[in-house]
């Protein structure tokens, strides 16, 4: 599978603060072509819409088991490093954050479909929980990358299903009412969840289970890639803010 090959070549330079320059981020397996889609029951599929061909970055949240494995690996590597350098302390020893191995990026093409003036993208991913991390390039022009590090959403992607996350409105999309600028004067990105105004996918997914994403708010995340930082605007019933504190509306939790 393409994403597995891409993960294998991931190489990141990580500073002491855990910031990274990704040399290669896993490329999402994007569904293009025509005709009905053959669903692999071991994979999940994420459907989203953009008004312009562009690229997005998602983070698969590492599972508890993966974090436990990372901790065990860290302990092993620490012992090995200390055998070469006995003065090395545990605090000084750092491995790249597990998150850095769990990013995927889409590319401008292939596009799954075009409907109602929107480009539909369908990507095959490992089942799990995903965060919409930001607008970042893998093959595109590479200008003005933005992470939603100050507030975004996550959703579950289940095996054998298509999860519809709606439309990601880019900061330079020309339709609709312009959103108020952020504190640096830049227009924000926005998420429009499935619902009114979002046209369901057409015939190519006939007979396939399509689930509207159930979103939860995600608290602040590191600016791993040194991008411009911003946050998604509030989403009724999902995401809100008290100044810079992210609020998961459904649970009422204030997120760190």
């Amino acid at each position: 599978m393409r994403w597995m090959q891409s993960v294998a070549v991931l190489a990141a330079i990580v500073s002491a603060a855990g910031t990274a320059r990704a040399q290669e981020i896993a490329q999402a397996e994007q569904i293009g072509g025509s005709g009905p889609v053959q669903i692999n029951p071991t994979l999940s599929y994420v459907l989203f819409r953009l008004a312009q061909k562009s690229e997005m970055r998602f983070l698969r949240i590492p599972t508890q088991a993966e974090r436990a494995k990372q901790e065990a690996n860290r302990a092993f590597e620490l012992v090995r490093a200390q055998s070469k350098n006995p003065d090395l302390t545990e605090a000084e020893f750092q491995l790249p954050p597990l998150e850095l191995y769990n990013f995927i990026n889409t590319t401008m093409g292939p596009v799954f479909d075009k409907q109602d003036g929107q480009y539909l993208y369908l990507i095959a991913v490992r089942p799990g929980s995903y965060v919409i991390y930001g607008h970042m390039w893998l093959s595109g022009p590479g200008d003005a990358e933005t992470c939603f590090c100050l507030g975004t959403v996550q959703f579950d992607a289940r095996a054998g299903q298509v999860v519809d996350i709606g439309r990601i409105r880019l900061n330079d999309d020309w339709d609709g009412t312009p959103l108020p600028p952020n504190p640096a004067g830049n227009r924000p990105f926005a998420l429009i969840p499935p619902g009114p105004g979002i046209v369901p996918p057409g015939d190519r997914l006939q007979g396939v289970t399509i689930t509207p994403a159930r979103f939860h708010a995600t608290g602040k995340m590191p600016n791993y890639f040194g991008a411009l930082i911003d946050r998604l605007p509030p989403i009724p019933g999902v995401l809100d803010y008290d100044r810079d504190t992210v609020i998961d509306v459904a649970s009422g939790h204030r997120l760190p």
Binding site: S15, A17, T19, A20, R21, G142, N223, G226, A227
Partner: peptide, 8 residues
């Protein structure tokens, strides 16, 4: 300061 490790 994370931008020190970014693309710019």
């Amino acid at each position: 300061r994370a931008t020190d490790f970014g693309m710019f």
